[in-house]
Computed example of a mutant assay.
Amino acid sequence: MERADEPAENLRQTLEWLRKELSEMQVQDQRLLLTLRHLHSVLEELRAASAHWEDARSSGAPSPIRARAGSEGRSHQPPSLGGLAQLLRGEESRRSSLP
C-alpha cells in the first residue's frame, strides 16, 4: 500500500536529479565554450600563417616552408595544435545517469 507522501518524495527526488544534471550540463557547456574559443584562436593563427606564406610565395621569395624545414623537424606541430589535441582527448563524454 502506497503512503500519501510517496508522490511528493518521488517528485523531490526527481527535481533533485534534474538540478544535478543541469549543473553538470553547465560545467560541460563551459568546457565546450573554452574549447571553441581555443579552436577559434588556432584557426586565426593558421589563417595568418597561411596568408603570410601566400604573400611570400606570390612575391617570389623563398618558400617559408622550405626555410623552416632545415631548422625544424618535419613532423613538428605548432604548439597550439598539439595542445588542442591534448585538450580534446581529455574531454569527458556526457553520460546518462537516470534516477
Rank of each mutant, 00 (worst) to 15 (best):
H76M: 06
A48M: 08
R19Y: 09
L32N: 15
S93M: 11
R74K: 08
S93G: 09
W17I: 03
L98W: 13
S80H: 05
L84D: 02
E54Y: 00
L18R: 08
L46I: 12
Q26F: 05
S23A: 13
R66S: 15
A56N: 08
A48E: 15
V42W: 02
E45S: 13
S96D: 11
L33W: 07
R31K: 11
R95L: 12
P79K: 04
R19V: 04
D29N: 10
R94E: 12
E45I: 03
S59A: 13
S80R: 03
S97R: 12
S59L: 10
R37Q: 14
A85E: 11
R47N: 14
R19S: 08
S93T: 14
I65K: 11
R57C: 07
R89W: 01
S58Q: 06
S80P: 03
A61E: 15
L33I: 05
S75T: 14
K20T: 09
S58C: 01
W17E: 08
R19D: 10
L46K: 14
L43D: 15
P62V: 07
T35D: 09
L98G: 08
L46R: 15
S41H: 13
S75H: 14
G83T: 04
H76C: 03
K20I: 07
H40Q: 15
S96C: 09
L88R: 01
D55C: 00
V42Q: 00
G82L: 05
R95V: 12
S75W: 12
I65M: 13
V27Y: 03
R37F: 06
S96R: 08
S58D: 15
L36K: 13
H52I: 03
Q30F: 05
L39T: 01
H76R: 10
L98S: 09
E54I: 00
R95S: 12
G73T: 02
Q86P: 01
S58P: 01
A56F: 00
Q28H: 10
S59M: 12
S97E: 13
L18C: 01
W17N: 10
I65G: 07
E44D: 15
A56G: 04
D55V: 00
G70W: 05
L33K: 15
Q30V: 06
Q28C: 06
R68A: 15
P79N: 04
E24D: 04
E91I: 08
L32A: 10
K20P: 01
S75G: 13
S50P: 01
A67P: 01
A51R: 00
L33M: 07
A49I: 02
E92Q: 10
E24Y: 04
E92Y: 05
L18I: 05
L39E: 09
T35F: 02
L81G: 01
E24Q: 06
H40G: 11
L43F: 09
A61S: 15
W53H: 07
L98R: 11
L22R: 14
R57V: 06
K20F: 09
L43Y: 12
P78Q: 11
E24V: 07
L32K: 15
L81Y: 05
S58H: 02
Q86W: 07
L22P: 02
E72N: 05
L22W: 11
A61W: 04
R94A: 13
L43G: 10
